[in-house]
Amino acid sequence: MPTPLFKNVCDEQFFSKLYDQYSKDLHDFIYYKYGEHFDPEDKVHEAFIKLWKNCKRVAPDKAKSFLFTVINNITLNDIKHKKVVLKHQKLKPKEHTHETPQFIMEETEYLEKYEAALAKLPEGQRVAFLLNRVEGKRHKEIAEMLNISRKAVEKRIYTALEKLRQEIDGI
Protein backbone atom coordinates (compact mmCIF):
# COMPACT_ATOMS: atom_id res chain seq x y z
CA MET A 1 0.00 0.00 0.00
CA PRO A 2 1.27 3.44 -0.89
CA THR A 3 1.17 4.68 2.68
CA PRO A 4 4.00 7.19 2.70
CA LEU A 5 2.15 9.48 0.34
CA PHE A 6 -0.68 10.03 2.76
CA LYS A 7 -0.60 11.01 6.40
CA ASN A 8 -4.20 9.97 6.96
CA VAL A 9 -7.12 8.82 4.87
CA CYS A 10 -8.64 12.26 4.30
CA ASP A 11 -7.34 12.34 0.75
CA GLU A 12 -10.16 11.62 -1.69
CA GLN A 13 -8.01 9.66 -4.07
CA PHE A 14 -6.70 7.50 -1.31
CA PHE A 15 -10.19 7.08 0.04
CA SER A 16 -11.51 5.88 -3.30
CA LYS A 17 -8.57 3.53 -3.56
CA LEU A 18 -9.50 2.04 -0.20
CA TYR A 19 -12.99 1.57 -1.49
CA ASP A 20 -11.72 -0.22 -4.53
CA GLN A 21 -9.52 -2.42 -2.43
CA TYR A 22 -11.77 -3.44 0.43
CA SER A 23 -15.42 -2.76 -0.38
CA LYS A 24 -16.05 -6.14 -2.00
CA ASP A 25 -14.33 -8.08 0.78
CA LEU A 26 -16.30 -6.14 3.38
CA HIS A 27 -19.51 -6.76 1.49
CA ASP A 28 -18.88 -10.50 1.17
CA PHE A 29 -17.73 -10.72 4.77
CA ILE A 30 -21.00 -9.27 6.04
CA TYR A 31 -23.07 -11.28 3.61
CA TYR A 32 -21.59 -14.62 4.56
CA LYS A 33 -21.53 -13.77 8.21
CA TYR A 34 -24.99 -12.35 8.68
CA GLY A 35 -26.88 -13.16 5.51
CA GLU A 36 -28.68 -10.84 3.18
CA HIS A 37 -31.10 -9.78 5.87
CA PHE A 38 -28.95 -6.76 6.50
CA ASP A 39 -28.22 -4.97 3.30
CA PRO A 40 -24.46 -5.55 3.09
CA GLU A 41 -23.84 -2.68 0.73
CA ASP A 42 -25.53 -0.34 3.13
CA LYS A 43 -23.21 -1.55 5.85
CA VAL A 44 -20.21 -1.02 3.60
CA HIS A 45 -21.35 2.53 3.02
CA GLU A 46 -21.88 3.18 6.71
CA ALA A 47 -18.40 1.90 7.49
CA PHE A 48 -16.82 4.10 4.85
CA ILE A 49 -18.82 7.13 5.95
CA LYS A 50 -17.55 6.54 9.45
CA LEU A 51 -14.02 6.24 8.13
CA TRP A 52 -14.39 9.49 6.23
CA LYS A 53 -15.68 11.31 9.28
CA ASN A 54 -12.76 10.04 11.32
CA CYS A 55 -10.28 10.29 8.49
CA LYS A 56 -7.90 12.55 10.36
CA ARG A 57 -7.51 10.05 13.15
CA VAL A 58 -7.01 6.93 11.06
CA ALA A 59 -3.53 6.16 9.80
CA PRO A 60 -3.53 4.68 6.29
CA ASP A 61 -2.17 1.32 7.40
CA LYS A 62 -4.88 1.06 10.04
CA ALA A 63 -7.74 1.80 7.64
CA LYS A 64 -8.38 -1.83 6.77
CA SER A 65 -8.77 -3.08 10.32
CA PHE A 66 -10.78 0.02 11.12
CA LEU A 67 -13.21 -0.83 8.32
CA PHE A 68 -13.58 -4.49 9.25
CA THR A 69 -14.09 -3.72 12.93
CA VAL A 70 -16.55 -0.93 12.27
CA ILE A 71 -18.64 -2.84 9.76
CA ASN A 72 -18.90 -5.75 12.15
CA ASN A 73 -19.97 -3.50 15.01
CA ILE A 74 -22.48 -1.64 12.89
CA THR A 75 -24.10 -4.88 11.82
CA LEU A 76 -24.05 -6.28 15.33
CA ASN A 77 -25.81 -3.20 16.61
CA ASP A 78 -28.38 -3.67 13.93
CA ILE A 79 -29.15 -7.27 14.74
CA LYS A 80 -28.93 -7.13 18.46
CA HIS A 81 -32.32 -8.70 18.94
CA LYS A 82 -33.18 -9.93 15.53
CA LYS A 83 -32.49 -13.45 14.48
CA VAL A 84 -30.22 -13.99 11.55
CA VAL A 85 -31.90 -15.29 8.49
CA LEU A 86 -29.51 -16.88 6.13
CA LYS A 87 -31.01 -16.78 2.76
CA HIS A 88 -28.50 -16.98 0.03
CA GLN A 89 -29.09 -16.02 -3.49
CA LYS A 90 -29.34 -19.08 -5.65
CA LEU A 91 -27.48 -19.10 -8.89
CA LYS A 92 -29.58 -19.67 -11.91
CA PRO A 93 -29.29 -23.28 -12.99
CA LYS A 94 -26.95 -23.80 -15.88
CA GLU A 95 -28.52 -24.11 -19.26
CA HIS A 96 -27.92 -27.78 -19.66
CA THR A 97 -30.12 -29.38 -22.20
CA HIS A 98 -29.74 -32.93 -20.98
CA GLU A 99 -31.09 -32.54 -17.49
CA THR A 100 -33.88 -34.96 -16.77
CA PRO A 101 -36.64 -33.94 -14.37
CA GLN A 102 -35.37 -36.55 -11.96
CA PHE A 103 -31.89 -35.07 -12.02
CA ILE A 104 -33.26 -31.63 -11.35
CA MET A 105 -35.32 -32.94 -8.47
CA GLU A 106 -32.35 -34.66 -6.91
CA GLU A 107 -30.27 -31.57 -7.36
CA THR A 108 -32.90 -29.38 -5.66
CA GLU A 109 -33.18 -31.85 -2.82
CA TYR A 110 -29.45 -31.83 -2.37
CA LEU A 111 -29.27 -28.05 -2.31
CA GLU A 112 -31.97 -27.93 0.33
CA LYS A 113 -30.02 -30.35 2.48
CA TYR A 114 -26.92 -28.30 1.94
CA GLU A 115 -28.66 -25.10 2.89
CA ALA A 116 -29.95 -26.64 6.11
CA ALA A 117 -26.54 -28.02 6.98
CA LEU A 118 -24.90 -24.68 6.23
CA ALA A 119 -27.27 -22.86 8.53
CA LYS A 120 -26.25 -25.17 11.36
CA LEU A 121 -22.58 -24.27 11.11
CA PRO A 122 -21.18 -21.87 13.68
CA GLU A 123 -20.76 -18.43 12.24
CA GLY A 124 -16.95 -18.40 12.24
CA GLN A 125 -16.76 -21.66 10.32
CA ARG A 126 -19.44 -20.64 7.88
CA VAL A 127 -17.80 -17.34 6.99
CA ALA A 128 -14.39 -18.90 6.46
CA PHE A 129 -15.82 -21.81 4.51
CA LEU A 130 -17.90 -19.65 2.15
CA LEU A 131 -15.14 -17.15 1.51
CA ASN A 132 -12.93 -20.09 0.63
CA ARG A 133 -15.30 -22.18 -1.48
CA VAL A 134 -17.49 -19.52 -3.05
CA GLU A 135 -15.18 -16.56 -3.39
CA GLY A 136 -12.13 -18.76 -3.96
CA LYS A 137 -10.02 -17.07 -1.35
CA ARG A 138 -6.93 -18.76 0.00
CA HIS A 139 -6.39 -19.46 3.68
CA LYS A 140 -3.90 -16.64 4.00
CA GLU A 141 -6.25 -14.03 2.52
CA ILE A 142 -9.08 -15.10 4.81
CA ALA A 143 -6.75 -14.98 7.81
CA GLU A 144 -5.91 -11.38 6.95
CA MET A 145 -9.55 -10.48 6.50
CA LEU A 146 -10.74 -12.02 9.75
CA ASN A 147 -7.62 -11.16 11.69
CA ILE A 148 -7.00 -14.71 12.86
CA SER A 149 -4.14 -17.10 12.21
CA ARG A 150 -3.79 -19.06 9.01
CA LYS A 151 -3.88 -22.26 11.02
CA ALA A 152 -7.20 -21.24 12.58
CA VAL A 153 -8.66 -20.57 9.14
CA GLU A 154 -7.49 -23.95 7.93
CA LYS A 155 -9.11 -25.62 10.89
CA ARG A 156 -12.40 -23.74 10.51
CA ILE A 157 -12.73 -24.58 6.85
CA TYR A 158 -11.78 -28.21 7.31
CA THR A 159 -14.19 -28.63 10.21
CA ALA A 160 -16.96 -26.92 8.26
CA LEU A 161 -16.44 -29.23 5.31
CA GLU A 162 -16.46 -32.33 7.47
CA LYS A 163 -19.59 -31.21 9.31
CA LEU A 164 -21.41 -30.47 6.08
CA ARG A 165 -20.49 -33.86 4.69
CA GLN A 166 -21.65 -35.70 7.78
CA GLU A 167 -24.85 -33.71 7.96
CA ILE A 168 -25.69 -34.14 4.31
CA ASP A 169 -24.70 -37.78 4.05
CA GLY A 170 -26.73 -38.41 7.18
CA ILE A 171 -23.92 -39.92 9.22
Binding site: S16, Y19, D20, S23, K24, H27, D28, Y31, Y32, E36, P40, E41, V44, H45, F48, I49, W52, H88, Q89, K90, L91, Y110, L111, Y114, E115, L118, F129, L130, R133, V134, E135, L161, L164, R165, I168, D169
Partner: peptide, 30 residues
Protein backbone atom coordinates in the same frame (compact mmCIF):
# COMPACT_ATOMS: atom_id res chain seq x y z
CA UNK B 1 -18.98 -35.97 -1.17
CA UNK B 2 -16.53 -33.11 -0.93
CA UNK B 3 -16.74 -32.34 -4.61
CA UNK B 4 -20.51 -32.35 -4.38
CA UNK B 5 -20.47 -29.93 -1.45
CA UNK B 6 -18.03 -27.77 -3.32
CA UNK B 7 -20.40 -27.58 -6.29
CA UNK B 8 -23.36 -26.85 -4.04
CA UNK B 9 -21.46 -24.06 -2.32
CA UNK B 10 -21.15 -22.18 -5.60
CA UNK B 11 -24.93 -21.90 -5.68
CA UNK B 12 -24.87 -19.61 -2.70
CA UNK B 13 -22.76 -16.81 -3.97
CA UNK B 14 -23.08 -13.36 -2.47
CA UNK B 15 -24.84 -10.91 -4.79
CA UNK B 16 -22.64 -9.31 -7.36
CA UNK B 17 -20.94 -6.27 -6.03
CA UNK B 18 -19.93 -3.55 -8.41
CA UNK B 19 -17.35 -1.36 -6.72
CA UNK B 20 -17.73 1.53 -9.06
CA UNK B 21 -21.49 2.03 -8.94
CA UNK B 22 -21.42 1.32 -5.24
CA UNK B 23 -18.77 3.97 -4.70
CA UNK B 24 -20.86 6.37 -6.72
CA UNK B 25 -23.78 5.75 -4.37
CA UNK B 26 -21.49 6.26 -1.38
CA UNK B 27 -20.28 9.55 -2.81
CA UNK B 28 -23.87 10.71 -3.10
CA UNK B 29 -24.45 9.89 0.56
CA UNK B 30 -21.22 11.60 1.55
Amino acid sequence: SYHRIDRAAKHFKAPDFDRETSFYRLKKKL
